[in-house]
């Protein structure tokens, strides 16, 4: 079958944010994108435009991308004011040109937030997410020291809920969508994932206190419960995890205030 949509091409105007480097001033530049197939992905359309720019001697538009199947979390364009574009529950790479019409002007910008400085054009530096993870987004489990995997039964419901949270691809759309540039959805997904599992209990309080502290230090904003984050999330991760993290944070703060500190903390390096 030859789908009708594959036969008809169309043209749009791209209004793209160009910025030569982190310190440079940026601005919008218009480029025509002609003979666009509706079956092209948004990033393939950018590939085509970039090849044309290269042929004209113009430096191509830098944009972040890798797996192009919505799982690596690299791609990160804000398209017409929405992170990852018009679709629901998809990443930029899963946005197809059939979402647009002939003659449209499409505004393409980087994910914006102070904690995500622009590297170049549409590419931003999201190392802040790694720093949050490094401060506590793990269960300490040295290779070789694990008990048998079935030694610890986990209710299916808990495992499934943990998986809902663990699906986060770390793209930063939640931060980009939030008017406060808050990373609460990202942090709460990791806190929720590990906190739901029995293995994660030993470090549960430390984890939430440390990750929230790092999140604040890195200059992300706070949550005003508008849930733009979960609506923009390519994995549609629920803001239920934010509520859960708020509760965890309060509980951990109370526990750390009232639990006596051990006299000696030898052992348990790192």
């Amino acid at each position: 079958m030859v789908a009708a949509s594959t036969l008809k091409t169309f043209s749009v105007t791209l209004r793209v944010w160009r910025q030569a480097g982190p310190a440079a001033a940026g601005g919008f530049v218009d480029y025509p994108a002609k003979d666009i197939s509706p079956d092209m992905s948004f990033l393939e359309m950018l590939d085509v435009v970039n090849d044309e720019l290269t042929a004209k001697g113009i430096e191509p538009i830098a944009f972040a991308h890798d797996c192009r199947e919505g799982i690596c979390g690299t791609c990160s364009c804000t398209i017409n004011g929405k992170p990852h574009g018009p679709g629901k529950g998809v990443a930029t790479c899963q946005t197809y040109m059939r979402s647009f019409s002939d003659g449209d002007t499409i505004v393409v910008e980087p994910f914006r937030a102070r904690a995500f400085p622009v590297v170049k054009d549409l590419v931003t530096d999201r190392a802040a997410f790694d720093k949050i993870q490094q401060s506590g987004g793990f269960i300490t489990a040295r290779a070789g020291s694990a008990p048998d995997a079935n030694a610890l039964p986990i209710p299916k419901g808990d495992a499934d809920l943990a998986m809902d949270a663990a699906q986060c691809i770390g793209c930063g759309a939640c931060v980009a969508a939030c008017k406060n540039a808050s990373a609460m959805l990202f942090v709460s997904a990791k806190v929720g994932h590990l906190g739901l599992l029995p293995q994660g209990q030993a470090e549960r309080d430390r984890r939430v206190l440390a990750m929230v502290n790092t999140m604040d230090t890195l200059g992300f904003g706070s949550c005003t419960n508008q849930y733009e984050c979960s609506a923009a999330c390519p994995k549609l991760i629920s803001h239920d995890f934010i509520a859960r993290m708020n509760r965890d944070y309060l509980t951990a703060s109370l526990r750390s205030a009232f639990k006596p500190a051990p006299a000696n903390t030898g052992g348990g390096a790192a």
Binding site: W17, F28, N80, G81, R112, N180
Partner: peptide
Amino acid sequence: LESKRARGGQAYGVKTWIQAT
């Protein structure tokens, strides 16, 4: 104030609300 600062110096050229009330 913190959130305004977090948003950064450069505003979006276009920004749409998705579902905030």
